[in-house]
Design a protein around this nucleic acid. Structure first.
Ligand code: ZN
Ligand code: ZN
Length: 682
DNA sequence: ACTGTCGGACGTTCAACGAG
DNA sequence: TCGTTGAACGTCCGACAGTC
């Protein structure tokens, strides 16, 4: 697993079996030559993050986790956003990456509106530019809207109803935008250069790049997450399960993951991550981004937002640049009582903050269309959100504060406006298939992952208590896994804080106590186990057994039977008869070259003897079991380091090249053989 | 048709760095 | 102190071969 210092991004790729003539350094997918892309978009916690194409409206109940939210700062760079929300005083609120705040234009009906902006790389900019020219002139909201529609056409889907509080379209996602006081820097923004150049820098999009727009049941289907070249960015789960990791196949955020469900693997657990080594000197960095804040000087920086004072200087260059790539960030200012103007998150509050003492942020969460109101009220006052914190120094802080605000109320991943919290009788929530039912209460996440059921720090598997129950038929493993769970939660997540300490010893009880609203996911596990217990065992795996799905995970009714070869390899490669892992446990042995350097520079380390010393979780006989055994008496990394030191002393081994033994009480983590034995992959 | 293997592209994280 | 950088580390695409 360990990747050699010469990472793939920095060395020409070696010829491979698949591409023996590979002499270039151009990635086969993704970025053009020489382009280093940073700030990626993934599905850190929610599989819907990178995709708004599902027709399943239920998907849209899913909130971002805090980390996902923070990553929105960058995600929004490559995403269309449609934000429709309502505020007490504002007749409507409408924004997207192309932000338009209509709150100042009261001649539009009071309504929840949303536009689906279709951004074109080569837009007809005349209308846009014309609007820019007239920014300082009074203009009606209809004209503004028209200009946008024209600019973004084709195609554009708009859904502006006649004044009902009705989001009649399953377009959602918790889009977040900034709202800033524009009074002091509106002129800069009005220049238009800030946004467009910014976007151009980030997207690096060519003339043939475009956002795709498909069809939805209401005519809305946006392919978000398109990277350079129009290619959709690859979504990654935050952490793959051990099986998917070994097979190098796509995992899912659910536990058991989709692949394990498909293949009937019932010990789908999160893989273990190797602690990042520290103390490595890196040498001087090249340059700081502030040195190329001028337009175009650092096209690949994800933070190359021109400073406001530079905007005027470069304004004349702006329109020519618009001609080849355009990602359309412009803003229509207003001077209403709120002085609010939407900007996209990437506009980086810091830049604005520095230039504008009046700056404040406001976070607007989209009205969740799955919160349906029986009375289609035309009174915008009926849906009111609490004011969000002002004067936050970052979007993340603002979001964190907003979400953790005692005024924020959440249930099943949906935020309730406080005035709706007392009108539960009029509120219908549609549970998300991707998120568990949650107690009705404050937003259950934090930026530290504390209490966030979808953060990396808190494995979903623990939230669902899959671990103790699904492997309960393996003798003695429940206790071990309990220890594992304890160990894994040592890094400070608060998963257990919501649990009743009196029930920690039992996974099922943990489960029950963690879902105090009566929802008991353990029933899912019980169902699975009940069904599986009636099936036939094949290498300890329940196979060929019809499993009814009582779960949000859509367990297939038929579990695929593994090939005989798979089973033979499986049983031959491990002494553990119950190994559910298809294939051999030899983890890609040919990924290491004769020097022990990983085949592609990614994987494996060697010792002084030239022996590969990076056994993986899957190398040898049941490394996972050994991990469990170790964790049975887990005393933290320090203890492990101590053990490593003892091992070295006892055996006189000197083959730990870069391992550092750190004394008790030091929080640093040792490296080298021991760590690799425990953590190594590939 | 399906599965396992695996090169290596692609994505994420976070300690080191360095500007203010 | 805090934002940026970029290496470390992770995921998983997609070609390929083997099996049923
Ligand atoms: Zn998986
Ligand atoms: Zn799995």
């Amino acid at each position: 697993m360990q990747r050699h210092i010469s990472d793939t991004a920095y060395l020409p790729q070696r010829p491979s079996r698949l591409n023996p003539n590979n002499t270039n350094s151009r990635p086969s997918r993704g970025l053009p030559v020489g382009v280093t892309q940073r700030g990626t978009m993934s599905m850190p916690t929610s599989p819907i993050l990178g995709k708004i194409s599902s027709a399943d409206a239920g998907l849209w109940n899913s909130p971002h986790t805090a980390e996902a939210t923070s990553s929105l700062q960058i995600q929004q760079e490559s995403s269309l956003q449609t934000v429709a929300t309502q505020r007490p005083e504002n007749p409507s609120y409408l924004t997207s990456n192309v932000s338009l705040d209509l709150s100042d234009h009261k001649d539009l009906p009071h309504t929840t509106q949303f536009l689906v902006m279709h951004l074109q790389s080569t837009p007809p900019i005349s209308a846009y530019d014309a609007q820019l020219e007239n920014m300082n002139s009074p203009i009606s909201s209809q004209e503004l809207l028209s200009a946008q529609l024209q600019y973004h056409s084709p195609p554009i889907h708009s859904a502006i109803d006649g004044g009902e509080t009705n989001l009649n379209c399953p377009v959602s996602a918790y889009h977040i935008s900034h709202t800033i006081n524009t009074s002091s820097f509106a002129p800069q923004l009005q220049s238009g250069g800030v946004r467009s150049e910014h976007r151009d820098d980030l997207f690096l999009r060519g003339p043939d790049d475009h956002f795709k727009t498909g069809s939805h049941e209401c005519g809305v289907d946006i392919d978000m997450d398109l990277g350079p070249g129009g290619r959709r960015k690859r979504a990654q789960v935050r952490i793959a399960c051990t099986h998917c990791q070994k097979a190098c196949k796509k995992c899912s955020n659910t536990r058991p993951c989709e692949r394990c469900v498909k293949y009937g693997l019932n010990d789908c657990i999160d893989s273990t991550r190797k602690p990042r080594k520290t103390g490595t000197k890196r040498g001087p960095y090249k340059r700081r981004s502030s040195k190329y804040s001028a337009i175009g000087s650092h096209p690949y920086s994800s933070h190359s937002v021109p400073q406001p004072h530079l905007v005027q200087r470069n304004e004349n260059n702006h329109r020519s640049e618009l001609n080849h790539t355009h990602t359309s960030h412009f803003h229509l200012t207003n001077e209403n009582s709120h002085g609010n103007m939407n900007i996209d998150a990437q506009s980086s509050s810091n830049h604005m903050n520095q230039a504008n003492p009046d700056f404040h942020q406001d976070v607007v969460l989209m009205t969740n269309p799955n919160l349906t109101y029986e009375s289609h009220s035309t009174n915008p006052q009926q849906i009111t959100y609490p004011p969000f914190p002002k004067a936050q120094t970052s979007l993340v802080q603002a979001i964190s504060s907003a979400l953790s605000s005692p005024q924020s109320h959440w249930i099943n991943g949906q935020r309730l406006p406080p005035n709706m919290q007392t009108k539960s009788g009029n509120l219908k929530t549609r549970p998300s298939p991707l998120y568990p039912k949650t107690p009705n209460g404050p937003f259950p996440i934090s930026l530290t992952g504390k209490g966030d059921p979808f953060s990396r720090a808190v494995s979903p598997i623990r939230q669902f208590a899959q671990l103790p129950t699904l492997v309960s038929d393996l003798d003695g493993l429940s206790e071990e896994n309990e220890d594992l769970e304890v160990a894994l939660t040592q890094e400070g997540n608060g998963a257990r804080e919501q649990l009743d300490p009196n029930h920690v010893s039992n996974g099922s009880d943990i489960l029950k106590t963690s879902y105090r609203d009566g929802h008991d996911p353990s029933r899912y596990n019980a169902d699975i186990n009940n069904h599986l217990s009636e099936g036939d065992h094949v290498d300890g795996i329940q196979r060929e057994k019809e499993v009814e799905s009582h779960t949000p995970f859509d367990i297939p009714s038929k579990i695929r039977k593994p090939s005989l070869r798979t089973l033979m390899l499986d049983s031959a490669s491990t002494s553990r008869a119950t190994s559910p892992v298809p294939g051999t446990h030899t983890k890609h042995p040919d990924r290491f070259d004769s020097n022990g350097i990983a085949g592609n520079g990614n994987r494996g380390v060697t010792n002084n003897n030239g022996t590969i010393e990076s056994p993986t979780l899957f190398d040898g006989v049941s490394m996972v079991d050994e991990v469990n055994l170790h964790l049975e008496h887990w005393a933290g990394w320090d203890h492990m380091n101590h053990q490593k030191a003892l091992l070295e002393t006892t055996n006189g081994q000197t083959n730990i090249e870069e391992g550092r033994v750190i004394g008790e009480g030091n929080n640093s983590i040792g490296e080298g053989l021991f760590g690799d034995m425990m953590m190594g992959l590939h």
